[in-house]
Design a protein around this nucleic acid. Structure first.
Lengths: 137, 137
DNA sequence: TGCTCATATGAATAAGTATTCAGATGATGG
DNA sequence: CCATCATCTGAATACTTATTCATATGAGCA
């Protein structure tokens, strides 16, 4: 016999709600990271959720590049690239090095690098299984 | 001496643009995954970019749960949870098993599971370094 | 059959986000 | 200094996305 029985009611934020497996609900909720941490993680994923930003970050995987080269590689306007880089910079995912009027950006967040590696590995892997008809660019 | 010289101009989609390091631009662009693959990857990240969806997926990491329990664990209305689950289901990230009037959802995408593991590991890791003042829920 | 419950859906609103253009900044070279 | 160039910024528009409420579906049970 437990503190809570199945098919019961569990306190949430002082409010209550019906649940089927009360024990699991309590257990899972205990393992759940803090709201702030989850929000941060969601933010990071959000920064990776735009194809243009993703292209920028992939381009930066093997070294720094200036804004105009990044724009050329990712096929967007320099203004658009700059906006995107600003966002990434604000989140410390990328840092800029100024050299005269040029700005060289580099990937500065190891966790993001890891996520990118995982994503690229997955792309390559599924590409081997079911090759897409090529629209490489 | 190369086909392209630095500080030059490179053809992009028939159009041209100024670049600083033409060789790197060409090299990086060749490594860039196909647009469709990148869009898919961005979509996946996008699905992980909402705190409520993230909570749902984290809750499902160690086994299936019914909608009402998921709603309870993640602290959202059952309607909201159902909407979110529908999105995840549409992308095959999650699958539903029906048992009478209940619907049990489980995580069905190993790649997403991996991304979640990476994110959670990162959370725990940084939590050790600089513990946040606790707002666990 | 008719009621209740778990889940699903639709439509509407509200909130967030990308993209673009025009112009600002600040370095460089003549 | 003046003109040019790379980058940055702000503001406006157009999109996408979340959230909510009302209602639909369809199973179980009396």
């Amino acid at each position: 016999m437990n503190k809570y029985s199945d098919d019961g009611v569990v306190a949430v934020d002082g409010c209550t709600a019906k649940v089927v497996d009360a024990d699991r609900v309590v257990a899972v909720r205990e393992r759940m990271p803090a709201a702030g941490d989850l929000a941060d993680a969601a933010d990071v994923f959000g920064l990776l959720s735009d194809p243009n930003r993703l292209r920028l970050l992939v381009a930066l995987l093997d070294g720094e590049l200036c804004v105009c080269d990044l724009a050329a590689v990712t096929g967007q306007s320099e203004s658009a690239a700059s906006h995107a880089l600003r966002l990434l910079r604000a989140h410390r995912i990328v840092v800029a090095r100024r050299a005269g009027r040029m700005a060289y950006y580099r990937l500065a967040d190891p966790h993001v690098r890891l996520l990118l590696d995982v994503a690229l590995a997955h792309i390559e892997h599924t590409e081997l299984l079911h090759p897409e008809r090529d629209g490489t660019t």
